[in-house]
Write a protein that binds this DNA or RNA. Structure first.
Lengths: 95, 95
DNA sequence: AACACAATTAGACAGTTGTCTAACAATCTA
DNA sequence: TAGATTGTTAGACAACTGTCTAATTGTGTT
């Protein structure tokens, strides 16, 4: 996972909504697609970007592909972000 | 500030580095530009995107424009993100 | 006023992105 | 095996993005 890929993945509203939904529960490609006004190939593209960034994982279950949030990477990213902006809260009393 | 503008702004590595530098101390456009292998107009464009997203503020001091991190908005964004991914840590024992 | 300095704006251009339709692949069931 | 279901891959295309050079704006200095 590269940081840049993660940020690129997060830069699209559709993909952020996919992540939000997967934060609630894992879902099949079809279930996710139902929630958006978009064709299946377009959604499939977004899944691929999120997978490339390692933000989600997938497994096949019969005819369906089940997507899940990659908890570890999401946590890592949040930690990284907090560290990145750590200086906000105290940049006046630290060297 | 729209969430989308913030994420778009964060999707570029140069802009993230600008934010990181401004997290350390406020700097003039020229000082920031020195840190990158890029022309002034290109940097100016990045400043504009960051300002549009309300992630930085600027003030004129003589001939120079001084840029600073917008602490409030950065904090808000981090809070929003943490809330967004809140379900990560406990999505197996919550409804 | 004339010039230098710091920075932005305007406009062009190649590369990337998000979306679509059409075609293909994998799995299940009759 | 044929057909239905679920999903991805291929390819096209308009819109957006990041970069550059050239021109412009605003400020200070002589």
């Amino acid at each position: 996972m590269s940081n840049n890929e993660v940020f690129k993945a997060l830069s699209d509203p559709t993909r952020r909504e996919i992540l939000r939904l997967l934060g609630l529960r894992e879902m099949s490609a079809g279930q996710l697609t139902e929630k958006f006004d978009m064709t299946k190939p377009s959604m499939s593209h977004h899944f691929a970007v999120l997978k490339e960034a390692d933000l989600i994982t997938s497994r096949r279950e019969g005819q369906q592909i089940i997507y899940s949030l990659n908890t570890t990477v999401v946590q890592d990213m949040l930690t990284w972000m907090l560290d990145f902006f750590r200086h906000d809260s105290n940049r006046n009393n630290e060297p």
